[in-house]
């Protein structure tokens, strides 16, 4: 029974996530940027733009220039999250890929990096007057959701060990459209439930910043307006 419930939940969540995000990306990609608006320091070549984008998404370069505290918490959170996500691949692959094995020990303890990041960001949201002013309930809720996921996940790993082999069997089954039994460990169930919730809210929340960062015209445009004429399709119609 539990297995079926969570299976349905995950199928729905995956559909919502994939279709929702794909639809947003499709929308972002189709809207033209009518004018050249790269922000300084703007690269003159497309290679330069790739490099800039790389520095932004890997090092959070602008955030670093902007605010060291937000950078420290935000960057630690995101990088830890990648490690944790990579580690989680082991529950969906058989045999486990070699590089996932390598990540395993780092991914395990990265959970504390995520907790550190969330605590820092949340603390600032409450304590710093300016950030408190711009926060909506949804901003707190998002941190609560992430915090809940990391906390319950860490519990199943470090405190109340769950039957991870059974979980893996369940997940591998889902990938083959076969629904099996799921251990009824409360931390595990809450963990899985919150993850599904996160996947469902992703396309309608600020988590859209993940695809959005690549579509920001001020950061993804090449500074070559004088050399190459840039014209949006709707603007081209004015010329005829």
């Amino acid at each position: 029974m539990l297995g079926i419930l969570f299976a349905v939940l995950f199928y729905v969540a995956t559909l919502v996530l994939v279709i929702g995000v794909a639809a947003r990306i499709w929308r972002f990609a189709r809207i033209p940027a009518p004018l050249k608006v790269p922000i300084a320091p703007a690269p003159k070549t497309s290679g330069g733009v790739v490099l800039r984008m790389f520095r932004e998404v890997v090092f959070f370069e602008s955030l670093f220039k902007s605010n060291k505290w937000i950078w420290l918490f935000g960057w630690t959170f995101h990088m830890s999250m990648w490690l944790v996500l990579m580690r989680h691949l082991r529950y969906f692959t058989q045999p486990v890929w070699g590089w996932v094995e390598v990540v395993q020990p780092f991914g395990t303890y990265a959970a504390f990096g995520m907790i550190f990041g969330i605590a820092g960001l949340w603390g600032r949201r409450i304590v710093v007057e300016r950030i408190r002013y711009i926060s909506s309930p949804s901003d707190h809720l998002m941190l609560a959701l992430l915090g809940g996921i990391v906390f319950t996940g860490a519990m199943t790993r470090f405190v109340a060990h769950t039957d991870i082999v059974a979980v893996k069997v369940f997940m591998l089954g889902l990938l083959r459209l076969k629904v099996g039994p799921l251990p009824s460990d409360p931390f595990l169930l809450v963990h899985l439930f919150l993850v599904a919730a996160l996947m469902i809210v992703f396309p309608v929340s600020k988590l859209l910043h993940a695809p959005g960062v690549f579509f920001s015209p001020s950061r993804n445009q090449t500074d070559n307006a004088r050399k190459k004429r840039h014209l949006a399709p709707w603007a081209a119609k004015m010329e005829s």
């Binding site: 710093v128 300016r130 600020k206 920001s216």
Partner: peptide, 24 residues
């Protein structure tokens, strides 16, 4: 505008309220 100008649409959707710009 959201159909005509990518910046408008992307900027409205993307802000995470991190607060990095608040003192700029």
């Amino acid at each position: 505008l959201a159909k005509r100008n990518r910046a408008f649409q992307v900027y409205l959707d993307t802000c995470v309220k991190c607060g990095a710009c608040t003192d700029k």
